[in-house]
Simulated assay, not measured.
Amino acid sequence: MSPRNAPRNAPRIAPAQAPYPPAVARTLDQLKTPGDQPLSLFRTLARDARLFARFTGAGLLDPGHLNLREREIVIHRTCALNRCGYEWGVHATIFADAAGLDAEQLAATAAPGIAACWGPREALLIGFCDAVHASADLDDGLWARLAEAFSEEACIELMLLAGFYRTVSLLANGLRLEMEGFAAPPPWA
């Protein structure tokens, strides 16, 4: 069967298998997750060492201008808006507890509108995600609210984070990556 005629749930490109090139192997060793192997997203990108290096070098999971909870709200909402169950489930499993996101809040990242479970700053993040998803832009009113709540550097990081996880969503959805065995199912599944 050609890739064009592959079933919707079959990966379009098979992940690379060990042994990996040395630079790829070193990076994969640093990206440990609960599964037996590195994430299939990482292993698929590892088919090309250049693309893999560019992708893994652009990550925003390090301590930055946002706290873990803020970062994860933006990642979950962005992935939910793009119906990327693969990445939503990985983050729900690996980061939600540490970020203090309970089951209601996780479900709210995928629900339309701004749920009552969010505080004002969190609701602002949800509104930010919805706006950039809808128009790849921020109106002046939203920008003013963000600038009042977050530093300029944090505002830049928010835009980078939403854009990066839109790219991750495109990769995971477009490549038809199978859910990781350890990952939580998304609320819309």
Rank of each mutant, 00 (worst) to 15 (best):
E70M: 10
A134Y: 15
T33L: 13
A92M: 12
P3W: 12
L41F: 11
L170M: 12
R166P: 00
A103H: 08
K32A: 09
L125M: 09
G85Q: 09
A154G: 04
R26P: 01
T27N: 03
A162N: 03
G113D: 14
V168P: 09
G119P: 05
A96G: 05
D137R: 15
L81T: 00
E153N: 06
A123D: 00
G181T: 02
R12T: 10
D102P: 15
L177Q: 00
Q37A: 09
L68W: 13
P22Y: 11
G119T: 02
G174Q: 05
P185Y: 05
A149H: 11
R47T: 00
P7S: 12
R8Q: 03
K32R: 11
M179F: 10
G35P: 02
R54D: 02
A116V: 11
L81C: 04
L31M: 13
T27R: 12
P112L: 06
R26H: 07
L61A: 07
H133I: 02
A80T: 01
D97W: 14
A108E: 04
F42Q: 03
A154P: 04
Y20E: 01
L170V: 07
L138G: 02
A116C: 12
A144V: 00
T78M: 09
L106I: 11
Q17R: 14
N173V: 08
I75G: 03
T93Q: 06
A18P: 04
C84P: 09
F128E: 01
A136P: 14
R50V: 04
P38I: 12
N9C: 08
G181F: 13
G59M: 12
A172T: 07
L138K: 07
P21Q: 02
A98K: 15
A80S: 05
G85H: 12
